[in-house]
Design a protein around this nucleic acid. Sequence first.
DNA 1: GTTTGTGCAAATATTTTGCACTTGA
DNA 2: TCAAGTGCAAAATATTTGCACAAAC
Lengths: 134, 134
Amino acid sequence: MARMTRQRSAVAELLDDVADFRSAQQLHELLRGRGEGIGLATVYRTLQALADGGEVDVLRTADGESVYRRCVRREHHHHLICRTCGATVEIDGPSVESWAAQVGALHGFADIEHTVELFGTCSACATARGVRGD
Amino acid sequence: MARMTRQRSAVAELLDDVADFRSAQQLHELLRGRGEGIGLATVYRTLQALADGGEVDVLRTADGESVYRRCVRREHHHHLICRTCGATVEIDGPSVESWAAQVGALHGFADIEHTVELFGTCSACATARGVRGD
DNA sequence: GTTTGTGCAAATATTTTGCACTTGA
DNA sequence: TCAAGTGCAAAATATTTGCACAAAC
């Protein structure tokens, strides 16, 4: 039910090499750039399978694109993302977990799940901007 | 630069009446149901303008639809959303705010913004499901 | 009267799917 | 072998846009 193919290996390897979130289309272009013969549909199908299996994180950008990234941690966690250069840090926050559960219970909600994403300017980008006086 | 038209009033009124997040398409259908002659494109344009002006909240559903809702509170806040019936509760969480700022600072990030959404099953839906033994 | 807004339909963009062909186990 | 995977192109979905017409100020 999960056959190892040239295409799937290529996607897996690419995800190992790439540090931040990339869209399916970007990943497809990168693969093509590496000389991999792979169709866009296959990239989508592979990413979807990986996401279902919890092997990659999926985020939705503000303009409605799905972006994917290999998850370093196995447990539930969140992201801190630089809004300028896209650098990401994986973080966890026990306090948020418990806060979410509490708030949910307070309003009579069960099975609480939550999405938390932090956006900011990383020190490198802040410095760059400071220098340029932007 | 912002002319008041029949269509815009209709959208504004509808947003006042509707409690939870609705997609542009749903809002358009609701307007048509009310007998308002209004085009889908106009609904999109109007919602976009309202969102730009900070008068409505925009969320992205997991399947890539944008959903809109008039913001009751002026201040920054979050949402608790029933994944079954879509009921929403606006919440605030000082602990999350400070946690976000701390985590950001710890990693050298400035200007931290965050998105936090909680999803759960509201008591009504939990009961309904329990009764059916689903 | 002029400028802004609207409706429609066509264009875009992203993701999904049908189907014949290929390929891994 | 042969079910699972792939590629392509067409379909589906959500949203945007060009343009002629209508309407607000």
